[in-house]
């Protein structure tokens, strides 16, 4: 009897344990069946959460903090929105913490300049330069303010200093030099500065235009056309670009069809009164090219 009871007990215990096993597998199956709507990545993160080591979370938290604690975020936003009054306030906030901060002094100077206070602008830019006399960025902006005051020669001297010093701000200085020489129509200097700059990573329409004019001087007409097309992609109704393209096609490439196309576009958009003479001359050139074609 005892033996039978013992066997029954053993059988009972083993049955209950197998039932538990079946239940446990059933529950895991259910979770796996209920979960498929969840994307794979989410499931992976759930597993990571349950794990003891969670390196991705540890990395992401400081990044978020960095973003929140970026001291220049307000300054960046003000520059982006061209909010010069806001920029002044933001720069001053930074300077209250550290009055030797060159970046804030530079921003404050430019904020004053854009609000029509060039003297204050120069004061803060010079203050930044007194802290770091080698700061090319500040020199760039001091040259900018000097140029806008009408002292081009002084500005050119400063930009050249920055350009020849090298570094990240030399590109800006070269671009400014090229545009300055283009306005002055000193094409030899434009070519010199353009060769130093190169055409890579140039995005501003004015600089692309200047590089195209430098290419014309070097008789690289196809390169000039490419650069002008790049600029026209950004500003397709820019009158100066269209006139330069018409000059390139008619005067240098002798391409009547293309030249006429640009002249028609210029006429359609309307010409500024001080540029009417150029367009009249170009129309005469187009007419003479047409006559030559008819004679041939």
């Amino acid at each position: 009897m005892k033996i039978i009871l013992g066997i029954l007990l053993v059988l009972g215990v083993s049955c209950s344990s197998t039932n538990q096993k079946v239940e446990s597998t059933a529950t895991t199956d259910e979770t796996e069946i209920q979960a498929p709507a969840e994307p794979l990545k989410k499931r992976k993160t759930k597993k990571q959460k349950s794990a003891v080591v969670t390196p991705p979370q540890e990395e992401s938290e400081p990044l978020a903090e960095e973003k929140r604690e970026d001291p220049y975020l307000g300054v960046k936003e003000a520059i982006k929105n061209a909010n010069w009054q806001g920029l002044e306030g933001e720069a001053q906030k930074i300077l209250e913490q550290n009055n030797q901060n060159i970046i804030a002094l530079n921003a404050l100077g430019m904020a004053h300049f854009y609000q029509g206070r060039p003297l204050a602008a120069k004061y803060f830019l010079n203050k930044a330069l007194s802290i770091n006399p080698n700061s090319s960025d500040v020199k760039n902006n001091l040259a900018y303010v000097t140029k806008k005051e009408g002292r081009s020669r002084q500005a050119i001297i400063l930009w050249r200093q920055v350009a020849t010093a090298g570094g990240s701000s030399s590109k800006i200085a070269y671009e400014n030099l090229i545009n300055e020489f283009t306005i002055a129509k000193d094409y030899k200097k434009v070519v010199g500065a353009a060769d130093s700059l190169g055409s890579q990573n140039v995005t501003s329409v004015a600089t692309l235009n200047s590089l195209a004019l430098a290419a014309i001087v070097k008789s690289e007409f196809d390169e000039a056309e490419k650069l002008l097309n790049q600029a026209l992609e950004k500003e397709n109704n820019n009158e100066a670009l269209l006139i330069n393209m018409a000059i390139l096609q008619l005067d240098f490439k002798k391409n009547l069809d293309q030249g006429r196309r640009y002249l028609d576009r210029i006429s359609f958009l309307g010409v500024q009164s001080n540029r009417r003479d150029i367009v009249t001359r170009l129309e005469a050139v187009a007419q003479s090219l047409t006559n030559q074609g008819e004679v041939k």
């Binding site: 900018y144 671009e175 545009n179 002055a184 329409v205 004015a206 200047s210 100066a240 330069n244 150029i278």
Partner: peptide
């Protein structure tokens, strides 16, 4: 030819 008045 025309230049464009622009400084960065």
């Amino acid at each position: 030819q025309l230049g464009i008045e622009y400084h960065r």
